[in-house]
Write a protein that binds this DNA or RNA. Structure first.
Lengths: 222, 222
DNA sequence: TGTTTGGTTCTACAGTTGTAGAGAATAAAC
DNA sequence: GTTTATTCTCTACAACTGTAGAACCAAACA
């Protein structure tokens, strides 16, 4: 069943085997690049098959390798999984950085939210991985630290943007900034779940409408 | 390590062994009662050790039995786990029914939300199990059906209460009922995650404040 | 008290998992 | 074309999983 996938992936890799990177390379493969490939394969497997389907053999097959090949890059499964979760967070944060560049106040806040919400199939896959991550982070201190660091940063960003909006007169006077940020954050976390599990009742359009309503509430300066 | 737990649980069960239930019992144990015990043991194990720690042996030990003993009641692990998830939903829904009895409009809505939010340690354990459930439901149609049925019911209840509030003049005219219900629902789902994983930044008091702000927004009839 | 029946334990087993490491394969360097 | 360093494959293994079922036990009845 996976033979064709493996073969195809191998062909791709061999095609790049003639890598014209040649600056100073005693090694044939770029370890950093390879680690990234493996992490992306892991990400795809978790999104498609769930955590229970993410065995080392499955991941190796998805990346186009045989079973033992991941060890030189990730000596243990825990490291691979952790790197994958970190990658997903990083991926989201990079998208956020791009989307909010040059913006501030309510415009930045809106761009941020629209980037975090699962509004397309790609981010829906991200949400699937994040849900798996949450399940592990609920019982793993390393995982919760990774999560909480990102959430703290998000809260800080949101508070900053709302503060800018307040100075610009774009924020309703009755709004409590930290609390409103937390409401928005919890809403976005919950949206990941609804969008993945209850997709029939949670379309992207639904989420956009819900977001718009909340932002309107923040703005509404009577 | 678990010997003492097992022994203690066994003692308890034997104490009840002289069960004075004697109405019409060809059997010595009440199967329904026993299934409930097993489901509760499973619930505790998932809350405490996570999904990966919920092996049949661990669950049996938690319930005070040996390995093979669960089979007469749950022939397969999948059935036991599914029954456990159904139990948690049922538990929440029963609590909601009690809390909202005799109420309507905004009072009912508030009581409902306060019952769903993880505002005490018991409901925090429930949240831990629910997070595990979400992870499985993301890749299991049976799981997502169970989830979506409950969510549909919740949405319906919330819409009903908001409709009553509207008739009573307790709801802001600008509020779109279904959308606002979804916002509230997603907020409550996300709160489960924040409360479990980022507990330092998400105390019960924080959640109560956030809920109050949202209900105020719904009420605020200018 | 002996028998029967439902309940529990315990051993067993096949399958899968993460991990290890010897060996084959490959590509660069001479 | 040979050598050498690196990368990958493949087999192996111990631990653990869910599940099956034989053996054992205790309570209820005759």
């Amino acid at each position: 069943m996976f033979e064709s996938t493996v073969a195809a992936a191998r062909r791709v890799r061999q095609g790049r085997g003639t890598m014209a990177e040649g600056v100073a390379m005693p090694k044939v493969v770029d370890h950093q690049q390879r680690k990234r490939e493996l992490v992306e394969a892991t990400w795809r497997i978790i999104a498609r098959r769930g955590l229970s389907g993410a065995t080392m053999r499955q991941i190796a097959a998805e990346a186009g390798f045989a079973n033992g090949s991941l060890k030189p890059y990730f000596p243990t499964k825990a490291e691979l999984i952790e790197a994958t979760y970190a990658f997903v967070f990083d991926r989201t944060n990079r998208r956020v950085a791009v989307a909010t560049r040059g913006l501030d106040g309510m415009a930045a806040l809106e761009a941020f939210c629209r980037e975090v919400l699962p509004l397309d199939v790609d981010r829906l896959d991200e949400a699937r991985v994040v849900i798996s991550f949450w399940q592990e982070a609920a019982h793993d201190p390393r995982g919760s630290e990774l999560n909480n660091a990102s959430m703290a940063q998000w809260r800080h960003s949101m508070a900053t943007w709302m503060g800018q909006a307040r100075e610009a007169g774009d924020l309703d006077a009755a709004i409590d900034i930290p609390s409103s940020g937390d409401v928005l954050l919890n809403f976005m976390l919950g949206s990941q779940i609804s969008a993945v599990i209850d997709s029939a009742a949670t379309s992207p359009a639904d989420l956009e409408r819900q977001l718009a309503a909340q932002l309107a509430h923040l703005r509404a300066a009577g």
